[in-house]
Computed example of a mutant assay.
Amino acid sequence: MTLAKVRLWTVDEYHHMTAVGVLAPEEQVELIEGQIIPMAAKNPPYAATNLCAADHFRQVLIGQALVRIQDPIRLSEYSEPEPDIAIVRLDSRKYIDHHPAPTEIFLLIEVADTTLAFDRGQKANLYAKAGIADYWILDVNDRQVYVLRAPTPEGYQQETVFGSDAVLAPLAFPGVDVSLQQLFP
């Protein structure tokens, strides 16, 4: 039996597919490790949590970082995911000429109502391999936060689950206390 090689797409090819109409602008997809992956539907509890969390981070990090919602980040030649929230370095031009790269990312957050296994598995491995030091998953159903830290090429070495009553500081902002209950509606 002959095994077929899998053709992986680069970020440039992915952008070209949209430019020429192979991928429609309204398609909800992201490029992960060379594969075009459909994104999950945005249910009301998910959308409300995403909005609450982004609003809270904008308030507590005003003037210290940009809070991007469901915008692309470029992790490698083969990965351009769209995390629910990306806390990134301030850029006076608002990243007009590139998407934030790992060296510009302070914290990534995914909101999970139906995607917890994917966010803890494939997304976590992708972010760890890129060296993202601080990755949080907001579990909408159980109102808890998974905090993943200490990235290695094989994955995160530390995962801690906090209840929504906890207070936590992002690694990049140790003086900023985030009340986790403020991240949920």
Rank of each mutant, 00 (worst) to 15 (best):
L168T: 05
H15R: 11
V147M: 00
A54W: 02
E159W: 09
E33T: 01
A117S: 12
A169E: 10
L107I: 02
R74W: 11
Q158E: 11
D55R: 03
T103I: 13
K5Q: 14
R120W: 15
P83L: 14
P83C: 07
R149S: 15
D119V: 04
T114E: 15
M1W: 14
A169I: 04
G21T: 08
V60T: 05
W136G: 02
D113I: 09
D139I: 04
R143S: 13
L75Q: 07
V6H: 10
L171E: 07
G63F: 02
D84P: 08
E13T: 06
Y135F: 15
L171S: 00
T115G: 01
L148G: 01
Q64V: 06
T114A: 11
Q64S: 12
V20Q: 14
Q35K: 10
Q144E: 13
Y46R: 14
V20W: 13
P174H: 03
D97K: 09
T152A: 04
M17Q: 14
A19L: 05
H99P: 13
Q158I: 11
P153Q: 13
H16L: 10
A40P: 05
Q35M: 12
R120G: 00
V147L: 08
Y156S: 01
A130P: 01
E33K: 08
Y14L: 08
A117E: 13
T103M: 15
A112N: 06
G155Y: 02
Q122Y: 12
P153K: 09
L90E: 06
L66I: 00
D139S: 05
V111F: 04
V161A: 06
F57R: 05
D55P: 05
Y146E: 04
V167F: 11
Q59G: 01
Q157E: 03
V20N: 15
P83R: 04
V20H: 15
H98Q: 13
Y135S: 00
L90I: 07
G21P: 12
E104F: 04
Y135H: 04
K5H: 10
L116F: 09
L31G: 12
L23G: 10
T114G: 09
R120P: 01
H56R: 07
S179H: 15
H16Q: 12
Y146Q: 08
G34P: 15
K94S: 12
R68P: 05
N50I: 11
E82H: 06
E104I: 00
A124M: 03
Q28M: 10
Q35R: 13
S92A: 09
P83T: 03
S79D: 03
L108K: 00
F57S: 06
P185S: 08
